[in-house]
Amino acid sequence: MTPPRVTKISRPKSVEYAWSGLRRFHNTRRTTDILIKRHKIPVEHFANAKKQADQIRSCLLQAKEYFDAFQISSLATKPVHLYYACMLMALAEILTKGSGNQSLDKLRDTHRHHGLLTNFDIRRTERGGLDPGLLRAKAHVSGDVKLGTFAVWQNLAKHPPLTGAVIRRFAGGGQSESVETILESDTRVDQNFPVDGLSLIDCVTHIPYLWEHMRPLGISVDLARTRIQLMAMESANEVTLRESFDIQPGNPTSIARAVEKIKIDPNLAAHTEIVEFRNGGISFRVTSHIYKKYTYENIERYRIETPHGMNLTSKDVFLLGSHDFLNEFGFLYCGLYILGMISRYYPDLWMKEIQDSTDFSIIAEYFLDAACHRLPILVLEQLSEEIILYDD
């Protein structure tokens, strides 16, 4: 499989960039051609591909309407607007990845539901706000079958390959540096979902964008922040690969869970250096020599198995020590569902949180900001099959 291209963008202009990119999929002829090529659709089914492209366009247009409404509304109604924008983006992703059996008209036969249910225990913390750990979203299950839009989305969702700096030193002198996918992790998300659901705090603590924002509230993001690098040094007779990933200081439990999932080819054990630092960080260095004159491109590079993760910047990757039944979009999806249901069906509680500026309302506002910035980028990645990173 050809690794997806990596695109770096400016953080301040990222939302505009993403929506401009998504407008490419308003052109149904272009989108039809993409679907035909991606799914190898035979000529007799071209009309169905055109129908799917029309539906993708409809979902993206309506998602942008809800997104624009989110931008101009107050916190009183923001969660509802952004949740529906998210659900429509999820439908666009389903239509792009799925077959004709996942067209909107087919989905309406069996999956006419959000796919999530509320499991709320309305209690307040000692500081007075609602407890985000007791507001949960559960999968909608009938018998043993998960139903609804969320279930269909999760069935098609994937974890992205992980990115980092690639430095090439050439045999004849000189070097190049780029950002590429380094550690392969492009697999379907685990289809399991907790029986008791996922809490809002679970969603908040699995969003890389909130790494710094949650600290003042005493909340630690449950991810291991990592920097990945691959150096390829070529000579006349061999290529020396030096793969490194440095886990930065953070939540010790999150780091320990991530480290437990790191697996290195036993043949490379003697060439592996692991250094644990006093500040809680851990560095892995794996050096190997390929004693044949291969080029960098045709060397099998994926010999280190890591946890699934999320790419944020050209220097920062966040590893999942647990909860790998969702990717970043999925955590935003569930969190927005919870906030949308609280604001819509518990308006008395929601408005009091806002008026009192409780910790809950601050967490919610940060989460909505993260979703605003990340959702358009994440859905563009899926539709265009690329990795989009902030360049800072």
Rank of each mutant, 00 (worst) to 15 (best):
H26K: 04
L22N: 02
E16H: 11
N48H: 13
D33W: 03
N48K: 14
R23A: 03
N48V: 11
H39S: 15
P42H: 03
E44K: 10
E44R: 11
T31N: 02
T32L: 01
A18L: 04
V43Y: 06
D33V: 06
Y17G: 02
K37D: 15
V15C: 08
V15P: 04
N27L: 01
P4C: 09
T7D: 08
T31L: 04
E16V: 13
E44W: 08
W19A: 02
E16G: 12
F46S: 08
K37S: 14
S10E: 14
R23V: 01
F25D: 00
I9H: 04
F25L: 00
P42C: 01
P4N: 10
R38I: 02
T32M: 06
K40R: 15
P42V: 00
K51R: 15
R11D: 12
R38G: 01
A18D: 03
I41T: 10
D33P: 03
K50R: 15
L22M: 01
I9W: 03
K51G: 11
R23G: 02
P42W: 02
H45L: 12
T28H: 08
I41R: 08
R38E: 07
P12N: 05
F25G: 00
E16A: 14
I41S: 07
I34T: 07
R38P: 02
R30Q: 08
P4W: 05
V6G: 03
Y17S: 05
I34L: 14
V15W: 05
H45N: 13
F25C: 00
R11T: 13
N48L: 12
S14Q: 11
H39R: 15
L22S: 02
R30M: 09
K50I: 11
S14L: 05
I41D: 05
R38S: 05
K40E: 14
I9E: 00
P42F: 00
K13A: 10
K51W: 09
